[in-house]
Design a protein around this nucleic acid. Structure first.
Length: 353
DNA sequence: GTGATTTGACCTTT
DNA sequence: AAAGGTCAAATCAC
């Protein structure tokens, strides 16, 4: 456990460091009054970093004290663990609503705008319910993220048409997205393509690049990737440089330099509508279609993976194979992680989710 | 056939 | 206990 703690600590330190850096960047953005959208994106990233750090700290506390796991995962009694998922008598999962991030905004339906347009916030939502609200003329519609099952994203929202102004809608969001959205990249442009062994392409959004690269790196067995600018000039990044991208695992200053070199801040945080002058074509021969979906379906209800945008697959591999932890997963990395022995009761609990 | 929506029932929160 | 929130079977759309 001790080793896991020190390993996770690196991730937490990195998340907090990233949050600080993003806050600094936001500060710089605010000075010349840059676009609202880029500022909003930065805020989102900052909050996400802090969420990740806090979620990790919660998980670490659990791993260090497995006796808490019953309270977290199995008990239906409210208030057993802050922000945790709970399982009710019918094995349903409910979230303690009061502990989730919640905010609302008002959206006006302009003339010529289709009804669904104001709610197209770039994320994919799936309607899961509608409810008549007391003293409200119009029913409230409930949506959750389409990627709830596949990526374990717990973001939800509800949309309520206001009584006074029928063109005005109040949209209340609960929980931030921990998923990678397909639609956002189309809206904002500056996408890049990932190609796997079979030639199957996967497009990723500009702001998703870093996490996506990290995800690809986690899949191991890669030697290089290619960057190509508008002039067709290619730049190959070798595997040892790729490792520098893994700020999640190695919190060193040189990797920040590498990141800046690939995605210079001016381009990375530029106006979303502008096309990037540095389109990238990545080829990851090691990018497989393997996902942690089976894990998500089992771990879907655990705070341990919620919001762990950058480390969920680590937990996946650690937990899914207790007999060969770490050494196989990270065999090509520049560091080693000592094997971890999990409490069998913990693994049993996870299996039953 | 697959994925999204509808809707009544059930659960949680206050 | 009432109201809000979620689930899941039935239904719809493609």
């Amino acid at each position: 456990m001790e080793k896991v703690g020190s390993w996770d600590r690196k991730i937490v330190i990195n998340e907090l460091t990233q949050g600080r850096d993003l806050a600094t960047e936001l500060k710089n953005q605010l000075q010349p009054a840059k676009s609202r959208e880029s500022c909003g994106y930065l805020v989102e990233k900052i909050l996400s970093s802090y969420d990740n750090a806090l979620s990790l700290l919660n998980c670490m506390a659990l791993l260090e004290n497995p006796s808490q796991i019953n309270g977290l995962l199995g008990s239906a009694s409210p208030g057993s663990s802050e922000g945790s998922d709970l399982i009710d008598s019918k094995n349903h999962v409910t979230k303690e609503r009061k502990t989730l991030a919640k905010w609302s905004e008002q959206v006006r339906l302009g003339s010529g705008t289709r009804l669904e347009d104001p709610f197209d916030d770039g994320y994919n939502w799936r309607k899961y319910g509608q409810k008549v609200i007391l003293r409200a003329k119009f029913p409230r519609a409930y949506y959750r993220c389409t990627h709830r099952n596949t990526q374990g994203c717990l973001a939800t929202k509800h949309v309520q048409r206001t009584d006074e102004d029928t063109s005005l809608f109040e949209v209340t969001y609960t929980g931030r997205h921990s998923c990678i959205q397909e639609s956002l990249k189309q809206k904002r442009g500056n996408s890049l393509m990932l190609k796997n062994d079979g030639g199957e392409k996967k497009e990723i959004q500009r702001h998703e690049r870093h996490s996506c690269i990290q995800e690809s790196l986690r899949q191991k067995k890669g030697n290089s990737l290619m960057l190509k600018n508008d002039g067709g000039e290619k730049k190959e990044i070798q595997r040892h440089e790729v490792h520098q991208e893994m700020i999640i695992l190695k919190n060193e200053t040189q990797e920040l330099d590498t990141k800046k070199e690939i995605f210079s801040s001016s381009e990375f945080f530029s106006e979303p509508v502008k096309e990037s002058n540095f389109s990238a074509s990545y080829s990851f021969p090691f990018l497989s279609s393997a996902t942690s979906e089976s894990y998500f379906s089992r771990m879907n209800n655990s705070e341990c993976h919620h919001n762990l945008q950058t480390s969920e697959s680590y937990f996946t591999e650690i937990i899914s194979d207790p007999t060969s932890v770490a050494s196989s997963t990270f065999e090509d990395l520049d560091f080693s992680i000592d094997p971890v022995i999990f409490d069998p009761k913990f693994l049993e609990t996870v299996e039953h989710l």
